[in-house]
Computed example of a mutant assay.
Amino acid sequence: MVTLDDIDRRILGELQRDATQSLEVLGQAVHLSRNGCWRRIRALEGAGVIKGRVTLLDPVKLGLSLCVFMMIRTNAHAPDWLEQFSRATRGMPEIIGVYRMTGDLDYLIRARVADMADYDRLYQHLIRKVPISDVSASFVMEEIKETTELPL
């Protein structure tokens, strides 16, 4: 864990909201010089706190209006199965999150697809690549909150 001061937190908060803002605008927002902001950002990148800078896209405008959570159960818990599963899911661009879980589920997958037919193609592709005991899916009817901002 990295120790952050108030200025680091303000910089990170600003960058989470808009990473495209200039160093001048960022400096004004956090009450620091342009160079001071630049040095802190470089230090935060070097410490691995800032992992990357991305552009967030609207999935609906790109024809990916269906968000699905796939609950995966497996009878295989060997390292080679996990590697096969990891390789398969990493290689499927529709899958935007894969999580190993505690409790009744083994894995939870979050995916974005165009429609039910597209989901079925994703499902068929996944079960061809790796043996799975059970897959159930829940489809998002309404996204109430979706954010990439972490609480600081």
Rank of each mutant, 00 (worst) to 15 (best):
A19M: 03
T20W: 11
E24T: 15
V25G: 10
V25Q: 11
V25L: 10
G27M: 05
G27K: 05
G27D: 07
G27A: 06
G27T: 07
Q28S: 09
A29S: 09
V30T: 04
V30Q: 02
V30P: 04
H31P: 05
H31G: 11
R34V: 15
N35R: 14
G36E: 06
C37Q: 01
W38D: 03
R39L: 15
R39C: 09
I41L: 10
I41Y: 12
R42K: 13
A43W: 06
E45V: 12
E45N: 10
G46W: 09
G48V: 10
G48W: 01
V49M: 01
I50D: 04
I50W: 03
K51G: 14
K51Y: 03
K51A: 14
G52M: 06
G52D: 06
R53Y: 15
R53K: 14
V54I: 12
V54R: 06
T55R: 12
L56Q: 09
L56V: 15
L56K: 08
L57V: 15
D58E: 04
D58K: 05
D58S: 07
V60N: 11
V60D: 14
V60R: 14
K61D: 12
K61Q: 15
L62M: 12
L62Y: 09
G63H: 01
G63I: 04
G63M: 00
L64K: 14
L64T: 03
S65W: 08
S65K: 14
L66V: 02
C67D: 12
V68W: 02
F69V: 07
M70D: 14
M70F: 05
R73L: 00
R73T: 00
R73G: 00
T74K: 04
T74G: 05
N75C: 01
N75A: 08
H77E: 00
A78K: 09
A78L: 00
A78W: 00
A78V: 05
P79G: 07
P79D: 10
P79N: 09
P79A: 11
P79Y: 06
P79E: 10
D80N: 12
D80P: 01
W81G: 04
W81F: 14
E83S: 09
Q84M: 03
Q84H: 08
F85C: 03
F85H: 03
F85T: 00
S86D: 12
S86L: 06
R87H: 15
T89D: 14
G91P: 13
G91E: 13
P93K: 07
P93W: 02
E94K: 12
I95D: 07
I95F: 07
I95P: 11
I96T: 13
I96K: 13
G97I: 00
G97Y: 04
G97L: 07
G97E: 11
V98G: 03
V98H: 08
V98Y: 05
Y99A: 00
Y99I: 01
Y99G: 01
R100F: 10
R100W: 08
M101T: 13
M101S: 10
M101V: 03
M101I: 02
T102R: 04
T102D: 06
T102V: 12
G103Y: 03
G103F: 03
D104Q: 04
L105G: 01
L105V: 08
D106Y: 07
D106H: 07
Y107D: 00
Y107C: 01
Y107G: 00
I109M: 07
R110A: 08
A111N: 04
R112F: 05
V113F: 02
M116P: 01
M116Y: 08
M116G: 08
